[in-house]
Structure formats: structure tokens, C-alpha cells
Design a protein around this nucleic acid. Structure first.
Lengths: 145, 145
DNA sequence: ATGAAATTGAATGTGATTTTCAATTTCATT
DNA sequence: AATGAAATTGAAAATCACATTCAATTTCAT
């Protein structure tokens, strides 16, 4: 089994919360980590089924919630209205291609700090943010414009 | 009737697209403009009913889509999962209070230009963006932290 | 090995949004 | 003003993603 670090991290979360370590949870985490981010629970379900045909959609759905609580995944809602899960890591933002659906991550210190300035101006305490640029990626631009 | 400019703008869009100018559409636009932004179709429906008890939800829903296409409104999906409509105007961003739900708009030239730089770096053509800071507003902070 | 507690998965519920369709309304043309 | 083709309306039903229920199964501390 790969992803020892993450599996251990899940195990620890389960223990701490008196939850149980099942093969389903282990398998779903594995599949989720193999796919590189921004995947829907439906897509995870399909992939999980290939290796574990008995695992139900509900379990995938609930396990993804669990992984979020455990800090291993996080939910994202882009403008197409379906929930996507990404591997949890430091604050970053997204470029989303409206043609092919590709999602590129980027990070920008400048924007981060400007955000804090703005929040300050409105006496607002920022807990999290979303920052998404929608448009056409390089490949899709070549195809037509 | 108020909002002559917007009503005229709707009329023009309808004409150009061989669509029909109905009292329902006129009334819904009116109500939508009276309410100051970030309103759900359900809220619009409730308000519309007070003046026009025969207008159905479906019509409100469809008219809001129409207003978006006509460039008079635009859809926003904040993290609570319901579609909200706001009056279409130049690019701006949002502070969303996670406690009371208040939505504050802000604009920041600095962030706008940095966005373009980033898009450039990835050879990405930006068509629109969303930028939302989630946290606690001044009033809600006073209540507890 | 035991059994209380957690988990599973099928089925069902939910809530927002979207489509269907027959009846009605609009509006360019007579 | 009357006509009729095309668009619109609104009630009801369908859809979609997400969430809950519950009986059967599995986990794991003892």
C-alpha cells in the first residue's frame, strides 16, 4: 500500500475520535490520493468500484466528508455546481478553463497580503478565501482564438 | 414605473432576440432592481408575489436566467449552495460573513492587475473571476471574539 | 471469543433547480 | 381590430446532487 504517511494520518484521526479503521476508508483514501485533486465524489466512486465493486456511493460520499474533517482533503465548489475534493495543502488559488475544465493551481503572496489589508479596512476577520480566475487555458486558446 | 434605463435595456434585448415583452418580465426586473443585490430566486419570488400573486416560481426562475443573458443580472454561488443574483456591474469582490451572512462588496485595483499577471504567466485568457473572503464581520466579531 | 458501538450500503428523503406541456399571451401582419 | 404563428406562462412532474434512515455487518476493546 502506498501513501503511508496519509494512511497513518487517517489512522490517527480515527483513533483519536473513536472511529473505526475499515478497508473501505483505506481504499477510498488510496484512490483519492492517486487521482491528482479536484475530483468529484462521483468520479471517486467510479474509480473505487474498479478495485472494490462492493463499496457503495454513500460510503464514498461519507468517507470524503470524513477525510475533510481529518484534514486530508478539502471541498471546493467551482461554478459548475458540483462539489470537488482536493488534497489539502497550503492556501492557493485556481485558474479554471471554461472549455476543457482543466484546473491549474497557483499561489500569490501579493494577493494574500492585499486580502488582509482589505479585510482590515472593513474590520473583517478572514478565516478562508476563494479566488478563482475563469477563462481559457493555453491549449484551448490555440484551438480557436 | 422606475428603472427606465434597465427596462429599456431589457426591451432591447428582447427585441433583438425575437422574445416577447411581458408584464411578468417587467415586474420581475422591477422587483429585482429594488432589492439591493445578492438575492435568491426564492426571495425574489416572495416579493414578486406581494404585488403579482399570479406569477409562478418557474417564471421568476426563468426570468432571472434571462436577465443574466441580457447582462442585467449575474449569478453568484457563495458557499451556502444557493444561487444568488446580483445587479450586474463592474468587477468587484466580496467579503462574506459566516455568522450573519452579510455580504460586503469591495474593489481592489491591485488585485485586479495581479490577476492579469498570473493569467499571463500561465498563458491563460481570463474572462471572469471570483474572489471571496469568508470570515466574521465587525458586528459579529464584537459578539464573541 | 464477545458484544457494544461504529460502519456499511440500499433505499429513501430532501431541497434547489430544470423540464414538460397544455393553456394563454404577444405582436407582426392583415 | 382580427388573425395566427411563435413565444410565454404556471402547475406539476422530473432531475440532480446531496443527505439521512435503518437493518445487517464489521470492528475492536475487553
Amino acid at each position: 500500500m502506498a501513501h503511508e504517511v496519509e494512511q497513518r494520518s487517517l489512522a490517527q484521526y480515527l483513533e483519536e475520535n473513536h472511529l473505526k479503521h475499515t478497508k473501505q476508508r483505506q481504499a477510498i483514501l488510496e484512490i483519492f490520493l492517486e487521482a491528482s485533486g479536484h475530483i468529484t465524489s462521483d468520479e471517486i466512486y467510479t474509480r473505487v468500484r474498479q478495485q472494490h465493486p462492493t463499496i457503495g456511493f454513500t460510503t464514498v460520499y461519507r468517507t470524503m466528508k470524513l477525510l475533510c474533517e481529518a484534514g486530508l482533503a478539502s471541498e471546493r465548489h467551482f461554478d459548475d455546481g458540483v462539489t470537488r475534493y482536493e488534497i489539502e495543502h497550503e492556501r492557493h488559488d485556481h485558474l479554471v478553463c471554461l472549455r476543457c475544465g482543466k484546473i491549474i493551481e497557483f499561489e500569490c503572496e501579493m494577493i494574500e497580503s492585499t486580502q488582509l489589508e482589505i479585510a482590515d479596512r472593513y474590520r473583517f476577520r478572514v478565516l478562508r478565501h476563494r479566488h478563482e480566475l475563469y477563462g481559457h487555458c493555453e491549449a484551448c486558446r490555440k484551438d480557436s482564438d
